[in-house]
Each structure stands twice: as C-alpha cells, then as structure tokens.
Simulated scan of single mutants.
Amino acid sequence: MTYRTHFNSYINFCNAINCAPLLVSSKNVCRYAAFLARSCAVSTVRQYLNIIRILHMEFGLGNPLTSWELKTILGGIRRHKGDQGNQKLPLLPEHLYKLHGTFNLSNLLDLQQWAACLCAFFGLLRVSNVTVKSQSEPGHSLCRKDFSVMGKGGILRIAKSKTNQYGHPPHTVVLPYIAGSALCPITTLLKFLGAQLAAPDTPLFSYTDEKGNLSVLTQSLFRRRLIQALKDIGLSSATYNTHSLRRGGATWLMSVGTPLAMVKAMGDWKSDAVYEYIKPSTAMKLDVVTSAVQKL
C-alpha cells in the first residue's frame, strides 16, 4: 500500500508539471522534493522520493537521487523544518503486562487483539503484517497456514511485506514460547486459533462472528482498540501507537544484549532505518558503561 501511495503521488506530480516520470531531470526531482516539503517532514520526503529510484532501477536506469542539487535541497528542508518528527515511544514488557489486564480473553475480539499485539511485539512485525486495510481488501494478510509450532516456539512465514513486494524469499519470523506467562505469543495465538476451526487459507487474525461473517482484523480497528487500551492504563496516543509494538520489540531485544545485526534481520529491515527504531535508554547506556569500567 505504501508503494502504491508513493507511486501515485509521483505520477500525479509529473502529470501536473507535464514531465516524464523516467529519465527525470535533477531540477524536477528537486521541484518534487520542495512540493512534498509543504506538508511533509524531511524523513517523509525522502520516503516519497525513493519511488523515483525504484522506478528507474526497474527499467535499468541510473539513480536520479544522487545529485548535489537534491542533497542541498534536502539539507535546506531539514534546517527549515527539522527532522525530529513525531516518533512514538516503544512499548516494553512492563507496558504489555498492564495492557494484558485491559482485555477479556474469553471474548474473541479481545483475544484477537491481544494475540496480534504479542505477535507484533515479539516478531517485530509491521502493523500491515497483522492487519488488513479493510474487510473487503484482505491484501497480503497472513493466513493460518503461515503459522506453525516447532521446537521452543512458533514460526510465521511472511510471503510479502513492505520490503518484499514480490514475495521472494519469504521472511521467517520466530515467536518464543514463554511458559506460564501472560505475554506468551504462542499460547495466546493457539488459544485464539483453537476457538474456531477454519481453512488453512483463512486470514490468521480472523474469526466468524455471530452472523456467520468473517471478521478480519483491520488496521483501523487494531489502532482504535490499542489506543483505547493504552488510555485505560494511562498512556497517551500522542506518544504511543501501534508502531510502538515493533519499536518496543526491537528496543527490548537490544536491552537484553541482542546484536544489532540480528535485530535488523529479525525485523526484516533492509536499510539502516533500524537505527531510527532503537533509542537506548539512560539505563541501557549506564549498563554498557558499567560493564566497560569493570574491564579496566
């Protein structure tokens, strides 16, 4: 969906200024960047510009985003608007324990939401991995056949995602089994799946409602219910949202000593964007310094 949004934005701009989208001049790339900057932060401008690079690569053409002019324009946008953005804080295990108390797990809707939250956290999943855009547009939703239990945990096989538009090779997500814990994603997901029998191709986070209709977890429903649960435990949607689960999982893994390269692989990051997700806390920094001092 992000690809389509960026693509349509760029094509509409090209049509508006009557220029070809391929073999685009540095001048027109800069014009597009300035156009985007009217309403976007510099980080978002870079994301939208990236579609130009992708299109040119698909046709075997050079990358038009390497010009000195564009670098200067982006620098100016950054100085004028700043690039701090509105990054949400990570949700950590201590938050998850509190969130658990807001759900009635005998209710299928609550169980669906909680299972998706735990999978998103421990699997470092994007919201688009565990939800669909709408009930009528399932897209590349995970299906029941994409989940399996093995060894000390479970496996989710994600065929297509934001960084894998064509489905090759699939991204494998490992979920831990945490015996006796309210935060165990395997126990929670199995409980949800076991509540109703369904075909292997059925969306993973779905169930049949009282009217016999298939109810799939949508992005809007997932977001709305999480925001309400956050509010119930005293956290504001101004500082936490659905993306806080993925960011929280990455931050937690780093806090327990997981190498950054492993976190990047587990979260399916293809670029250095992972650095934007992981902000070491003061306690984490202090642990590192204390450990280093002991080796003096």
Rank of each mutant, 00 (worst) to 15 (best):
M1K: 13
R4M: 11
T5K: 13
I17A: 11
C19Y: 03
P21V: 03
L22S: 09
S26F: 10
S26V: 08
K27D: 15
K27F: 14
V29A: 07
C30W: 02
R31A: 15
Y32V: 10
A33E: 02
A34P: 04
A34C: 15
L36N: 04
A41S: 14
S43M: 11
T44F: 06
V45T: 07
Q47K: 14
Y48M: 15
N50Y: 15
I51Q: 03
R53A: 15
L55D: 00
P64N: 08
L65N: 05
L65W: 04
L74C: 03
G75I: 07
G76V: 05
H80Y: 12
H80W: 09
D83V: 00
G85T: 01
G85N: 08
K88G: 01
K88N: 08
P90G: 01
E94M: 09
H95M: 05
H95W: 06
H100I: 03
G101M: 03
L109A: 14
Q113F: 02
A116S: 05
A116K: 01
V130L: 06
V132D: 02
S136R: 14
G139I: 12
C143I: 12
C143P: 00
D146Y: 09
G153H: 04
G154V: 08
I155S: 04
R157N: 11
N164W: 12
P169D: 07
H171R: 01
P176S: 08
I178P: 05
A179C: 13
A179H: 15
A179P: 10
S181F: 06
L183I: 02
I186Q: 00
T188H: 02
L193W: 03
G194K: 07
Q196Y: 07
L197P: 08
L197Y: 14
A199W: 12
P200Q: 08
T202Y: 03
N213G: 06
L214W: 05
L214M: 12
L217S: 05
Q219R: 15
F222A: 00
I227Q: 11
L230W: 04
K231H: 13
I233K: 03
Y240V: 05
S244V: 02
S244W: 00
G248L: 01
G248N: 02
G249Y: 07
V256Q: 10
V256Y: 02
G257V: 06
T258C: 15
P259R: 06
V263A: 02
Y275P: 05
E276V: 08
P280S: 05
A283D: 01
V289G: 01
S291I: 07
A292F: 11
